[in-house]
Write a protein that binds this DNA or RNA. Structure first.
Lengths: 194, 194
DNA sequence: GCATTTAGTGTACATATGTACGCAGCGGGC
DNA sequence: GCCCGCTGCGTACATATGTACACTAAATGC
C-alpha cells in the first residue's frame, strides 16, 4: 500500500518539477511570517508548500539552509519593493513624506512579508551564515536612500527606517503617516514641508 | 536508586530556595543570548540554571511564560543601563557623542545581553503576549532620550538608536564611535561638536 | 511533638523533529 | 528498443521536547 501511493497520489510528475525549489523557499517565508523562526521546521515548510518532507530535505538539507534561503528571498523582495518605490519617486517629491508613506505601506499592505523579513534579519544575530545577507540588506537600504539624498544621509535613514518599522509594528496605536513624516523630516534636517 | 538520588544530590534545600525563580529567569536570558529564541526550551534553561526540569515547568508552566519573563528581565536591564548612562551625563555633555558611546558600550561590553534583548524585542512580532513589553521598552527609550533633548527628539532617537545597534551588530566592520557620532549629530540637527 | 498544608521535584509519556537511506521513475547512450 | 545513471521522494528511526502527575520534605498551627 505504501508503494502504490507513491505513484498514485503524486502531486507533480516525479523528477523535473522546475520551480519546486522556489515554491519551497516561498513556503519557508510564509512559515516564518506566521510562526516566527522557531516555527521553521522541515515538516512545516513541506506542509505549506504541499510537497513531501523528503523534498524539503533534498533541496535544503539542513535547517540553516532553509533559514538562509528564506532570508535571502525575503530581503530581496523587501529591497525590490523599496527600489520600486524609489523608482516611482518624482524628482521633486517630498522625500520625508514619501518615506513615511513607505513605512506605512510596509506595515499595512505587506505586513506579514515585512514581519518575516525583520525576523530573519534579527535571526542573523545568532546564525553566522546569515550575517552577510543581513548586512547586505542594510547596505542596499543605505544605498537606495542615499542616492535620493546624499550617501551620509542614506546611512542615517537606513537604521532609522528599520527602527521605525519595528517600533511602529509593535506600538499600539501605531504612529500615523503624518507622525512618521514629521519625525523623518526633522531627522533629515528639518524644514517644514514645501 | 532513583529515590536516594533525590535526597543525595540535591542542589539546594528543597522547598524555600528563594531566588531560584530569579536564577531561572537569568538562565533564560543567557540561553536566548547564546542560541536565540528557538533555543529556549525548558530543558536548556534547566541545565543552564542547574535546576531540575520540573523546577522550570513549576515556576514557568509554558514556554510563553519563559519567553515573557526573559523579555521583561532583559528589557528592564537594558533600560536600567541606559538610565544609568543618562544619570551620569553631565548637564553640558555633548549628547551626540555620548549617545554614540552608549551604542558602542552596548555592543562591546554588553554584547550578549544586548543581543538577547533585541532578539526578544523582535520575537514580540509573533507572540502577542510580549507586545506590550516591547512597546514599553520603546516608550522608556523615547522618554529617557527625550528628557535630555525634547520629547519629539526622543521619539526620533529611540528608533534610530535601536536601528543603529542592530545594524552595527551585523555590519562588518562595525561602525566606529566617531562614525556613529557623526550620524547621530546630523540626525539631531547637525552643528559640529562644541 | 504531631498533623496538615503547600512548595518543589523526579519521572514517564505522547508527540514532534532532524536526518539517513533504499527505491522509483525519467533522460541519455548505444 | 534496451540499459544505466541520476534526480527526487517516502519512510523509518533515534532523539529532543512539552507537559502531567505522583511523591517528597520543609513549614506552619496547635
Amino acid at each position: 500500500m505504501a508503494v502504490s501511493s507513491n505513484t498514485g497520489q503524486r502531486r507533480a510528475r516525479g523528477p523535473n518539477d522546475p520551480g519546486r525549489r522556489d515554491r519551497i523557499a516561498e513556503a519557508a517565508i510564509r512559515i516564518v511570517a506566521e510562526r516566527g523562526v522557531p516555527g521553521l521546521t522541515h515538516r512545516a515548510v513541506a506542509a505549506a508548500a504541499d510537497v513531501p518532507v523528503g523534498s524539503t530535505t533534498y533541496h535544503f538539507a539542513t535547517l540553516d539552509d532553509l533559514l538562509s534561503v528564506a532570508l535571502h528571498e525575503a530581503s530581496q523582495r523587501n529591497i525590490a519593493q523599496i527600489r520600486e518605490w524609489a523608482d516611482d519617486l518624482a524628482p521633486d517629491a517630498d522625500f520625508a513624506a514619501e518615506l513615511a508613506a513607505l513605512v506605512r505601506l510596509q506595515l499595512d499592505s505587506r505586513h506579514s512579508a515585512t514581519t518575516a523579513a525583520y525576523d530573519l534579519y534579527v535571526a542573523a544575530l545568532h546564525y553566522p551564515s546569515l550575517r552577510s545577507a543581513s548586512a547586505a540588506w542594510d547596505e542596499a537600504l543605505a544605498e537606495i536612500f542615499g542616492s535620493r539624498t546624499d550617501p551620509e544621509m542614506g546611512r542615517i535613514l537606513a537604521p532609522l527606517f528599520a527602527g521605525l518599522v519595528l517600533q511602529a509594528s509593535l506600538a499600539d496605536p501605531s504612529p500615523s503617516r503624518r507622525q512618521l513624516e514629521a519625525w523623518i523630516r526633522r531627522a533629515m534636517g528639518g524644514s517644514p514641508a514645501p
